[in-house]
Amino acid sequence: MRWTSIVAIYLLFWSLSAFLVLPFGVRTHEEAGADRVPGQADSAPHDYRFGKLILRTTIVAAVLFGLYYANYVNGWITPADLDYSR
């Protein structure tokens, strides 16, 4: 596998992981016991930490990509295994 393919596939896993990780650990102002800003949505996060999101996303993406690459090298699941039209 070329290194450009590795980077592209990792970035796909990273963007997927960002959406998977996004709702975890988020507390609203009501849950945190803080006052809301006038006009703020009820579901807006109280203390949004972008760095923590990036770190969690990177870890999840690395694990998922590691599994994908191990499958690519070892051939555990092949396209023939997923062909149900037979």
Rank of each mutant, 00 (worst) to 15 (best):
R2K: 14
W3Y: 14
W3R: 10
T4R: 10
S5E: 12
S5K: 14
I6A: 08
A8Q: 12
A8Y: 11
A8D: 13
L11I: 12
L12N: 08
F13Q: 05
W14E: 03
S15D: 10
L16V: 07
L16A: 07
F19V: 12
L22E: 15
L22R: 08
P23H: 00
V26Y: 12
V26D: 13
H29S: 08
H29G: 04
E30C: 03
E31N: 08
E31P: 01
G33P: 01
G33L: 05
A34E: 14
A34Q: 09
A34W: 14
D35T: 12
R36W: 12
V37W: 11
V37D: 06
V37I: 14
V37M: 07
V37R: 07
P38G: 05
G39R: 04
Q40C: 00
A41M: 11
D42W: 07
D42E: 13
S43M: 09
S43Q: 06
A44E: 15
A44R: 10
P45L: 08
H46K: 06
H46P: 02
D47N: 10
D47K: 10
D47F: 04
F50S: 08
F50D: 04
G51S: 03
G51F: 04
K52H: 15
L53D: 03
L53F: 05
I54Y: 13
L55P: 00
L55F: 11
L55I: 14
R56I: 13
R56E: 15
R56Y: 15
T57K: 08
T57N: 13
A61Y: 00
V63W: 03
V63S: 03
L64D: 12
L64C: 08
F65R: 01
G66K: 01
L67N: 08
L67S: 12
L67T: 05
Y69L: 13
Y72I: 09
N74M: 05
N74F: 13
N74S: 11
N74D: 11
G75T: 06
G75S: 00
W76H: 07
W76Y: 14
W76Q: 04
W76K: 04
I77G: 02
I77E: 00
T78S: 05
T78L: 08
P79H: 02
A80K: 10
D81N: 10
L82I: 08
D83K: 04
S85K: 09
R86M: 02
